[in-house]
Every structure is written in structure tokens, then in C-alpha cells.
Amino acid sequence: MGQGGEPRRAHAYDGELGAAVARAQDGDEAAFAVAYRIVQPGLLGYLRGIVGDDAEDVASDAWLEIARDLGRFKGDGAGFRGWTATIARHRALDHLRRLRVRPRSAALEQDVLDLPGAYSTHDQALETLSTERAMELVRGLPRDQAEAVLLRVVVGLDGPAAARVLGKRPGAVRTAAHRGLKRLARQLGVEGVTDDGRRTLGDSK
């Protein structure tokens, strides 16, 4: 159910994107710019989740490769999202290897875990959740969950496409995305009812 919601939004552009990609493959640079504008925000969001502030540079590298290999691509708009996400991911992993970045610090994760409780309802959270805050939360997740969530929510891929990008089985990716979203929901205080239940149980003892 949650799976249908997000891709649907991305799919709104997929027809336009597919047409733009087809024209770009015929040599139309204006169409390529259109495809760039449609894809880049999601790609950049995904890359921020992996490489943080270096996302712009990595995305730039990825686009050089996308522009070079565009003739090889076969597929529609949704397929183009998956193809570009795969290229971006490879560039991001190359980047991480080059930097030899140590694993994300536990301190950040702990900060994030301490913060929830500020939002009592998700309507309030929706109003106040900033890009930085959201990215902090997502980067606080284990890598596989963070990537699964970002591919689904930000890039707009469906389960099988996300699994192909990550080189994993669709079931594993679906589970990772679900766990990641669950955890984010808890941190955002969206699941107030559960907390009440636990507190009541604790009081009664």
C-alpha cells in the first residue's frame, strides 16, 4: 500500500521523461536537458543519502557518464530512473572508496534518536521537517535501509527496480525499505499511539 503511493508521484513525469529520453537518444540536446531536470532532484537526494555533501560532485560525474552512454540505454521513463540511479550509485561507491570514509559515526545516529518527541502528530512534522533534518534522519539508518528508502521515496523506483539498482533480491529490499520507514516514523513521532500503549503497560506494573 505504501509502495504504491510514492512511485505514483514519480510516475506522473515518467511519460514526459520517456519521451525526452527518446528524443535525446536521437540527438536532441534540449530533450536531454529536460530529462536532466526531471531526474536530477531525485538523483541528488539519493546521493546525499550516500555521500552527504559531496553529492553534487558525484552527481556531476554520474551525469557525464549518463550523457556519454545514453545511446546504450533501452527503456522508458521509469527505466531511465533506474538506469541513472545505478550509474549514480556506482559513482558514489567509487567516491567512498577513494575517500576511504569511515562508517557513519554512531554519535550522529544517537543524536537523531534522542530528538524525537518534538512532533506529536505527523501533520506538525510535515510542516516543520526540513531537508537537512530529513537527510540526517535517513543517514542515521543502516546503509541498506537508507538506500532502499531513498530509491523508493526520493528517486521514485518501484520494488524490482530498486532491487536491481542495489543488486539484491526484491524481497530483501522491500523489507529494508519497510524497516527504514518504520524507524523514521518512530523518530519523527508519527507513531504516538504505540508509545502511549507502552507507557500504560509500564505504569500498570
Partner: peptide, 11 residues
């Protein structure tokens, strides 16, 4: 249901 809500939020 919150999967969707959180997705909306994050997106």
C-alpha cells in the same frame, strides 16, 4: 499507513 505518510514527508 505511516509508511506512506513518512514517504510523503521525506519526499
Amino acid at each position: 499507513g505511516d509508511d506512506t505518510a513518512v514517504e510523503e514527508l521525506l519526499a
